[in-house]
């Protein structure tokens, strides 16, 4: 309970579909068992189709998300183009490893589409930047076990955008309902070639 990763609570999941990806997070911010806010999104956008989910210590979620906004802005000015999800993942990895002996207490998740090929891309990281490339789904936060159980049984290959939305939403909603530190509504992003749909899920408010 006193682990920095589980003081504030929160959950995040990303999934691959057919020519689309999805990323979703809950909205809770807490101090141990006490809920402080029910509007604390954990997904941040860093390009037309590059998204980062951050769970863990809330102060680090805020700081790290701002740090990457700064780094991505600098990248865009220097390169005069948007950052690709794979490039961004390597930036996340090296930035986290810089803090090898005093890490940010976050578990990041990246989701996006390759700007050239339109190929779905997702990956996850540990707090010091080891990348976990996945073909199916990535989970993070205090509800990881529940999310693994849900995703492993609901996810299947080549889901269309609408099916993918249903799958990721059901996975997240049912997982956070069995985790006291996560929940209180959710944000779901469905990322397709030249279209991003953001939906707010109400979910259980307890």
């Amino acid at each position: 309970m006193s682990s920095p990763f589980s003081i504030n609570g929160g959950a995040c999941v990303a999934m691959v579909g057919k020519d689309c990806v999805a990323i979703a997070c809950d909205l809770r911010l807490g101090l141990q068992a006490l809920t402080v806010s029910n509007n604390f999104p954990k997904i941040f956008q860093y390009g037309d189709n590059v998204f980062l989910g951050l769970t863990g210590l809330a102060t680090d979620v805020a700081t790290v998300s701002d740090l990457f906004r700064y780094k991505v802005n600098m990248y865009r000015l220097r390169e005069e183009r948007q950052i690709a999800p794979r490039t961004f993942s390597n930036l996340v990895s090296s930035s986290l490893y810089e803090r090898r002996f005093g890490p940010w207490f976050v578990s990041p998740v990246v989701a996006g589409l390759d700007p050239k090929t339109g190929q779905p891309f997702i990956c996850g990281f540990d707090s010091i930047g080891c990348i976990d490339f996945a073909k199916d789904f990535i989970v993070s936060g205090t509800a990881t076990e529940q999310l693994f159980g849900m995703c492993e049984s609901l996810w299947e290959p080549d889901l269309g955008p609408d099916q993918l939305f249903e799958t990721i939403s059901q996975s997240l909603l049912n997982a956070v309902d069995r985790d006291a530190l996560s929940g209180w509504g959710a944000h779901v992003y469905i990322i397709e070639k030249d279209k991003v749909t953001k939906r707010l899920l109400k979910g259980r408010q307890d």
Binding site: Q146, M150, S153, L173, N174, D177, R178
Partner: peptide, 25 residues
């Protein structure tokens, strides 16, 4: 902890709603 949320969803139909039957709660 992996199985229980799956059961909530598939046995007790938790978080499943009738489409178009209302807004929010």
């Amino acid at each position: 902890s992996l199985i229980m949320p799956f059961l909530d969803n598939q046995v007790n139909f938790k978080n499943q709603f009738i489409p178009g039957s209302g807004e929010g709660h």
